[in-house]
Amino acid sequence: MPQTVFAPWDDPRETPLIRFQNVTKKFGEFVAIDDLTLDIYAKEFFALLGPSGCGKTTMMRMLAGFEDPSSGRIDLAGQNIVPVPPNKRAVNMMFQSYALFPHLSIWDNIAFGLRRDKKDKDQIAARVDEMLKLTRLEKFARRKPHQISGGQRQRVALARSLAKAPKLLLLDEPLGALDKKLRQDTQFELMDIQETTGTTFVIVTHDQEEAMTVASRVAVMDEGRIMQVATPAEIYEAPNSVYVADFIGDVNIIEGRATPDGEELYRIDWAEGQEPLHAASARYFSAGQKCHLAIRPEKIFIATEKPVDAQNAVQGRVLDIAYLGNLSTYHVELPGGQIIKAQTANTRRLARRSITWEDRVWVGWSATAGVLLDQ
């Protein structure tokens, strides 16, 4: 049986679990969140992504109840939660520091919230054992937090947050304290746990790779506003602005003026004395309209000879080569001084690389390789 794609945001019959409606948050004169409207659906793994100070943590603190909006409303499962105190919301928050009790065992740390809710002993024991199994911590139940690794502490904090079965779990930079390899392993664990429990996760991160790995959808934020909300693939392949294209992954941006040149095709005049470039776009541009062509480095090829059939080919000089093991990124200076990055997979030994520093090379790409943007 074919697996159905999880995309409740595309179904008009679906009701969002969380709804921000015209939410503004001011701290004195400073506007942290600016008239924000956003829907998040049940069982989503939703990422708020943006630079420091963009408002993503403020949004999370409003969901948790630690901050009140200056105006607008926030609904959770159809109820306005703004007047509801934090401890009465079906929301739990996992902090970057994990905030575990050092004097309590792992078992007691997970049981803490359930005991405060006056659950009976058998219920608590069954739920804690379930959480230990879910996070693969059964062997460590009697240890104290200082006796386990950082990755295991992260899982304890997660188990404790999920023990009370919240409708919504908020994760504030949850993997910030882990090293890169452990971060990557833990990202997949988080996804598995989220899928197993069906809890809605909202994660705040400034790490684009993390957001792209774990999230069903990503909201890219800047200065209290949401610039784009879409799946990771859409954000990467079809950004709606230079800001989003530039924030996610590596990108080349070429500025120019677009002129229609056939159905959904445009000619781009971009540098004095240079052949125009060609780009396909469903977005309409009027003759001479300013545009930005965004092209990912992996979509650009590099060669020593001019390609015969390339829709776009520009000659330049290799300024720099970044060797990343599986990939090499070539920084090529074009005649106008613009630098283009082209990426190739290293399928051969380095000694056999045909292009090196200061070489004259051609970089090229197809008309559909880039995204034509108007802002």
Rank of each mutant, 00 (worst) to 15 (best):
residue 202 V to R: 00
residue 228 Q to A: 09
residue 218 V to M: 00
residue 233 A to G: 03
residue 204 V to A: 06
residue 246 D to V: 06
residue 234 E to R: 14
residue 219 A to P: 11
residue 248 I to L: 07
residue 254 I to Q: 13
residue 205 T to V: 04
residue 234 E to C: 01
residue 249 G to K: 05
residue 217 R to W: 01
residue 233 A to W: 12
residue 236 Y to G: 01
residue 238 A to W: 02
residue 248 I to S: 11
residue 218 V to G: 01
residue 251 V to D: 12
residue 238 A to Y: 15
residue 250 D to W: 00
residue 252 N to Y: 10
residue 254 I to Y: 05
residue 249 G to R: 04
residue 231 T to L: 15
residue 230 A to Y: 08
residue 234 E to L: 11
residue 235 I to A: 10
residue 244 V to W: 09
residue 221 M to N: 02
residue 206 H to M: 12
residue 235 I to L: 15
residue 213 T to L: 00
residue 250 D to N: 07
residue 251 V to K: 07
residue 237 E to C: 04
residue 223 E to R: 15
residue 201 F to K: 09
residue 237 E to H: 14
residue 220 V to A: 03
residue 216 S to R: 12
residue 225 R to Y: 02
residue 221 M to H: 00
residue 256 G to M: 11
residue 216 S to P: 10
residue 212 M to Q: 03
residue 215 A to R: 01
residue 224 G to L: 09
residue 254 I to E: 04
residue 245 A to K: 08
residue 212 M to C: 00
residue 234 E to G: 05
residue 235 I to S: 06
residue 210 E to I: 00
residue 213 T to E: 00
residue 240 N to D: 10
residue 214 V to H: 10
residue 238 A to K: 15
residue 200 T to I: 11
residue 256 G to T: 09
residue 218 V to I: 10
residue 218 V to H: 05
residue 239 P to S: 10
residue 210 E to T: 07
residue 214 V to Y: 08
residue 254 I to K: 01
residue 233 A to L: 11
residue 232 P to S: 14
residue 213 T to K: 06
residue 232 P to V: 10
residue 238 A to H: 14
residue 215 A to H: 02
residue 242 V to F: 08
residue 252 N to K: 02
residue 242 V to E: 10
residue 221 M to W: 05
residue 246 D to F: 02
residue 205 T to F: 08
residue 203 I to N: 10
residue 254 I to G: 05
residue 217 R to P: 03
residue 240 N to Q: 13
residue 255 E to R: 12
residue 234 E to M: 11
residue 200 T to N: 05
residue 232 P to I: 13
residue 251 V to E: 02
residue 219 A to C: 13
residue 224 G to A: 10
residue 215 A to W: 04
